[in-house]
Design a protein around this nucleic acid. Sequence first.
DNA 1: AATAATTATGAACGGTGTTCATAATTATAA
DNA 2: TTATAATTATGAACACCGTTCATAATTATT
Lengths: 195, 195
Amino acid sequence: MAVIHQTQIRQEILETTRKLLVKYGYNFISMRKIASNAGCALGTIYLYFDNKDILIHSLIDEGFEKMYNMLLDETRKYEQPDKRLEVLCKKYISFGLEYPEYYEIMYLLHPERMKRYPKEKFRRARRTFDLVAEILDEVAENRGILLKDSTLISYSIWASLHGVVTILLARRLDKRIDQNDFIDNVVQRTLRSVI
Amino acid sequence: MAVIHQTQIRQEILETTRKLLVKYGYNFISMRKIASNAGCALGTIYLYFDNKDILIHSLIDEGFEKMYNMLLDETRKYEQPDKRLEVLCKKYISFGLEYPEYYEIMYLLHPERMKRYPKEKFRRARRTFDLVAEILDEVAENRGILLKDSTLISYSIWASLHGVVTILLARRLDKRIDQNDFIDNVVQRTLRSVI
DNA sequence: AATAATTATGAACGGTGTTCATAATTATAA
DNA sequence: TTATAATTATGAACACCGTTCATAATTATT
């Protein structure tokens, strides 16, 4: 009964999984391929991760960290609240398009798998929403308006942005429509409808 | 080299697949289970469907048909353009929540699988957008405004609605937020931002 | 040095989608 | 009606999958 693991091989497994995920996509990843690439036996992985889901989920933190930093960096470039909200929206979408593998494990894993989705991952995801809510409050204050529920509106904004990303990742946008026009339109509609 | 198949068993396979899909969800479906339930041999399925994806895709038409009719029925209940647009949005979301299995194969199948996604399915999906665009034009006319690109706006609206559905299906909504409040908020924001 | 605890292994289990040689059936030709 | 050809049905076999577990190798403790 092993209790605490913190050896080199655990990190190696994680890094290998991340590399395979980014390089080949979620569907390519199998426990055998990870073991093979990480230079360990198949069973060894199960000493450090209870199952495949938990292993994959360990990468979600990385994704949220990367995303949060990208959004923070981008919004810090500007001071005007409306502008900050705009670049936040656009950066969210471009993150999704730039790192589809991360976006997939962060937001698109099938619901059934989510039974195993650890709660602390949700907490980490929430940090992004706090950022949105924060900037929303700035916008409201700047316009001299009182926002009833910035959290609800944050999630509401997220829905639109998430819709854009998933539609584009699933290649479901009508080819007659320009991708950038589509993104701009949703973002503009979103911004206009905020308050 | 079989060329044309139109026997009873093909329909039986399709119906069995649909039943298994609705009853147990996408992940439960395997070719063996379908064969077993349809009362044929494993290999028989491959006489009528090149592979699993194509078999599943055959059900997509059903989904789009069902959805289109639901949306049409709902919007026909009203005459006022704004109201028609509102119930359209709400019905779209409730369809997604009510028939997650269909919604999944219609809109959420992983992008990699979409390489095999037949083009005629896209065409069928477009009918829904034409309905949205149609109602959008009504709204514009009613308000005496000229809409530049109702197709683009249709897809833009879709993004928001699709975002709502996927977030709810993936159970990613913060539990502090009421589901109906969330839906209403997005729909209201969407309607307000249309023009 | 001997024992105990930990860590690593890979064969085995029951599943998956897909292929294909073979068998059964149906349609056509003599 | 019989013989041949074309079609349709079969399920074993292949190469994969996630997971388990008895066993082996290694490390720590006594």
